[in-house]
Simulated scan of single mutants.
Amino acid sequence: MELNAEKLQALLGVMVNELGAAQNAALVIVGEELGLYRNMAGRGPISAAQLADATNTGERYIQEWLSAQAASGFVEYDQATGLFELSCEQAAVFAIDDSPVNMVGGFLALEAVYADRAKLTNAFRHGGGVSWRERCNCMFCGTDRFFRPGYKANLVPNWLPSLEGVIEMLERGASVADVGCGFGSSTLLMATAFPNSEFIGIDFHAPSIEHASEHARGLANVQFMTARAQDFVGAGFDLVTIFDALHDMGDPVGAVRHIANAIKPDGILMLVEPMAGDNLEDNLNPVGRVFYAASTNTCVPASLGQEVGAALGAQAGQAKLTKVLNAGGFSKVRKSAQTPFNMVLEARL
């Protein structure tokens, strides 16, 4: 086998970048936990000594951390002054929790990916899956933190209005089930925006439901239930929502079929899934790269750890998702909205 020097150098360049990204992922988590990004936001140029003093941390560690951040392009460095600064754009990504482009949650979930790597390797070798119940706790926190900014930016102002007649229905008062709600961020956003409607968040992971219930205190129009998507109790819903969860389910057709039986004849199922084309070649891009990796590490093992084990994957695409919805009893399906990270499908009986 004869090596192509040009291709080899290009690949080595990619791998150096990958190693740097992997090493710095841990440092992003450190920066989040110690409040380093938040302390830099809006302060202008700052020295390592000043940041260490403000965060009660060791200056030598901070100097090295800042250097790594500057080499990654995560903070700015001024050679003339030797000072570091978090730009407005960098603050939006790392420091501002309510920012629609905050990406810290994706890094937090990586702790679980590496902590559970041996379980994944075992599943590769021997089959089966790695269920949500087996995952490190930081997977749940990280997943919620990753998706929540996008939900906050899009759910009420963009996604719900893309569904015909839904805003008027919610303002009058409707019955809504949020299936696979996790920590309940999507449920709580809707319940806060539409006080005349009643919301129930449903998830089979009891610790997540406990967390969601804690955050729901003070909201009279929302409750949470520990139950599976394919057999939860309840009927007569005007709207059912599933946010980034259907592809993780072992039996997505069974879940959709149960929802079809629980929804009113004129009700709507809103399905939010990771953005993807229908073919592999459509998804060979930076966003697809993130989601294929997350799917391999988390989504496919989660599905294979349940009954049926359909393993749709996080890049299922609209055509495959439509087949699932049709098989579950929804005859009318259309894409109503999309972002770089999500697609929204509206399904009716």
Rank of each mutant, 00 (worst) to 15 (best):
V233G: 05
N17R: 07
L189F: 12
G313W: 07
F74D: 13
C141S: 10
D266M: 10
I29G: 01
P149S: 09
D178R: 03
L321Y: 04
L239C: 01
G180M: 06
T339A: 10
Q50R: 09
A5L: 13
L163G: 00
L34E: 12
G218N: 11
L325H: 00
R60T: 13
G150L: 11
S175H: 13
P195K: 05
N297K: 11
D278C: 03
G44I: 10
S213M: 08
V166F: 06
E168R: 10
A21S: 11
G142Q: 08
A310R: 02
A302Y: 03
T187S: 15
K335R: 14
V308T: 15
Q338C: 12
L108P: 00
V240K: 00
L189I: 09
I209S: 12
A52L: 03
V308W: 08
S197M: 00
D266T: 13
G129L: 09
M190Y: 01
K152S: 09
A262P: 05
A41M: 04
A347P: 00
Q23V: 15
V308I: 15
Q230Y: 09
G82N: 04
E2A: 08
L219I: 14
M343S: 07
D238T: 02
E111V: 11
V101E: 11
K332L: 03
D231C: 07
M1Q: 06
P265H: 10
A91T: 02
L8Q: 08
R348G: 01
T192C: 05
